[in-house]
Amino acid sequence: MTSVNPYLFFHIFIVTIMLFVMGFYCIFFTFNLVRALIGVELLIKAVTLLIITAGYVTGHMALAQAIVITLIVVEVVFIVVATGVVIGLHGHNGTLDTRKLRNLKG
């Protein structure tokens, strides 16, 4: 393992935070169910990047890879179930608009 350029890690850290801002903005400012899930996916991408970088920087690359593989499996199952719920909601409401979700309150 070659020596790591510390500045590169710093840039990756900044990029991760930028992706976080995008993801949370996407979740909170959209009125579309699918787009909210896409925001969640973007956040998971940011976390994946962070874990891989952490493994590279600390020299525990193998452990980081093992973790990310499990993470990807979990992510896929999560997305499948979530899209199932979205399709079910669409079947009831006929729309993907979150503003129609007013049946329950807080």
Partner: peptide, 15 residues
């Protein structure tokens, strides 16, 4: 670029 060959396969095919 970070030498994580195993994960690249998963990320590319699954994600």
């Amino acid at each position: 670029r970070f030498d994580s060959w195993l994960v690249t396969v998963f990320e590319l095919s699954v994600c």
